[in-house]
Design a binder for these strands. Sequence first.
DNA 1: CGGAAACTTGAAACCTTTCAAGAGTCGTGG
DNA 2: CCACGACTCTTGAAAGGTTTCAAGTTTCCG
Lengths: 246, 246
Amino acid sequence: MTPPANREIKTKLQVTCQNCNLSDVCIPRGLSHKDVERISNLVTRKKILQKGDFLYRQGDQFRGILAIKAGTAKLLALDLDGNEYITGYFLPGELLGFDGLANERHACSALALETLTYCEIPAEQIDTLCLEVPNLLRELFRHVGRTLTTETDHFMLSQRGAEERVAGFLLDLSDRLSQRGLSGVEIKLTFSRHDIGKYLGLTLETVSRILKSLESMGLVTVNAKSIHILDKDKLRNLLASENDGG
Amino acid sequence: MTPPANREIKTKLQVTCQNCNLSDVCIPRGLSHKDVERISNLVTRKKILQKGDFLYRQGDQFRGILAIKAGTAKLLALDLDGNEYITGYFLPGELLGFDGLANERHACSALALETLTYCEIPAEQIDTLCLEVPNLLRELFRHVGRTLTTETDHFMLSQRGAEERVAGFLLDLSDRLSQRGLSGVEIKLTFSRHDIGKYLGLTLETVSRILKSLESMGLVTVNAKSIHILDKDKLRNLLASENDGG
DNA sequence: CGGAAACTTGAAACCTTTCAAGAGTCGTGG
DNA sequence: CCACGACTCTTGAAAGGTTTCAAGTTTCCG
């Protein structure tokens, strides 16, 4: 029942970095039209994964830097005990895979939380591409840098009280969604309570309770996986002035 | 009483990357003799700081990547509440400053825990230097990558039980000291209990108690700031097989 | 040597987890 | 279209680990 001319259509509608709707948040952001064109030819495009599929696994050979086109992903790692931690998450336009830079092997696993498409800058191309397009070099540094500071923020958040952690998570998610042109108010979660917990260092029960509590405070509405942010300012106040020794 | 010919002597004894004793752990690690020579000329050398001095402060303009020659430093950040977190620490041969890559401004403050000397690759040089010395590009990526995975490990450690956190900290410190040719057994701490606590997400009292407890288990000897690691394997077992649902 | 800062130690308080059971949601198939 | 089973989420009560508060002790540095 699928049209037989599938491949031709795909070719015709070929998405390049130039016409990708994420060009102002993804790699092209800091690059000239010409630079983008240059990169676009070497980027492998439109891989598609289903919920639960791995983009890569802990221990895998580093194959390249990935840019998410659509969908969300989580980064997870196991410690020596086999405990699971979620060390990060990714939205459309965000880059992942940097955890493979240190050793040529990935330190974390990345998996799709829903149907997901992504592009890839192959590892072998990175060096040469950076030499040809110096601005790409700078952009990549900017992106690893952001990944780093995001992890720092994540660490700091994970040290706070449970309510602050959940509030901080919602705000971060909301802001990152907004930056990507998606609604930062009507949020459709792709994370389970368990995922949120593992990301924040809480149990799923605690996440559930806090979400309830935020709802009863009138800051959000929670319906299973949909969260409506009602009062972003008050949510922020939870993080800004709750505990400082006034 | 200091010799007047101070400057001449310094010039004569000029430390370059080539004769720096950290060349096998610092940037030169992956580079050819010729490449190192090239870099060495552009690296600013031998800045000296005293305990408590800042290498840079949160919000400062990004000036470059720093390599510690001697001494230790801690990275700290403040959240919106003014709470302090220690997000990392650095030993001789380690690179820091990557938290300034994302925004041109540093997301953390770095400060010396003791008298400290360091070298600097100025920000303006990084791009051109990477273009001239492609291996440097790869090395820098390797280093940010390691910084990233170190932070991931740090996050995971900070989610575990108090005893495991302290044990993990000691092991990490020990391993990193060993890698740099320093003793990983006789450790002279430059961190206060408060610092260790802020790094691990514990209070100083808890750190003190756990250290005592590790001592009474015969795993370490603690005398104020000197720690002697007596049984590294048992210390590791604390992290590896304590909590897994056997 | 003296004072400030860092560290130790104890007991009570507090927050989050754990354990347990029930309710809701989703997808599949009758 | 409803039923079933699996999975996810909610809710409660008790347990547990870490923090907090408080008071000493030691160490460091001028």
